Amino acid sequence: MRKLLDGVYTGSGLLSAGLIAAICLLVTAQVLLNLITKYGPFDINLTIPSYADFAGYMLAASTFLALAYTLMRGGHIRVTMVLNLVPSGFRLAAEVFALALCAVVAGYSSFYMYRLVHESYEFGDMSSGIVAIPLYIPQSTVLAGLVILTIALIDLTIQTIRLGRPVIVQMNTE
Rank of each mutant, 00 (worst) to 15 (best):
L59M: 15
Y108N: 08
Q30D: 01
D125T: 09
S16A: 15
L59D: 06
V131L: 15
L156Q: 15
A68P: 00
S12I: 01
S110E: 00
M171K: 12
F111R: 09
L163H: 14
S88D: 14
G107F: 02
S128A: 14
R91T: 00
Q170N: 13
R91H: 05
D6M: 09
L32G: 07
H118I: 00
R2L: 12
Y136I: 05
I77H: 00
I48Y: 07
R165Y: 05
S62P: 03
A55V: 10
Y69K: 02
V169C: 12
G7S: 13
T173M: 14
T80E: 15
S140P: 06
T63G: 13
I23R: 06
Q159A: 13
L19V: 06
V86P: 02
A17C: 04
Y57W: 10
A61F: 06
A66Q: 08
I48G: 07
L67A: 05
G145H: 01
L99T: 01
D155P: 00
L83R: 11
G129C: 04
S88M: 10
T157S: 13
T150R: 04
L116K: 09
A132K: 15
N34Y: 11
I130K: 11
F90S: 12
V169F: 04
P41L: 11
V147S: 04
F111E: 02
V96F: 01
S16C: 10
N172M: 00
Y121Q: 09
K38E: 12
D6E: 14
Y136M: 11
L146A: 03
P41A: 13
T70H: 03
R73N: 15
Y136C: 08
V104W: 01
H76V: 05
F54S: 01
V31W: 08
E174F: 10
Y114F: 14
Y114M: 11
Y39S: 08
S88Y: 09
T157H: 05
Y39F: 15
L83I: 02
Q170Y: 12
V31Y: 05
M58L: 15
Q159S: 12
Y114G: 11
M171T: 10
V142Y: 04
Q139R: 13
C102T: 11
P87W: 06
V147T: 10
I20R: 04
V131T: 13
S109E: 08
A132P: 03
Y108F: 15
G75S: 02
M113I: 01
F97G: 07
H118W: 11
L101C: 14
P49C: 08
Y9M: 13
T173W: 06
L92Y: 06
L32W: 09
A152F: 06
Y114H: 10
M1G: 12
L26T: 12
M113K: 00
G164P: 01
S50P: 03
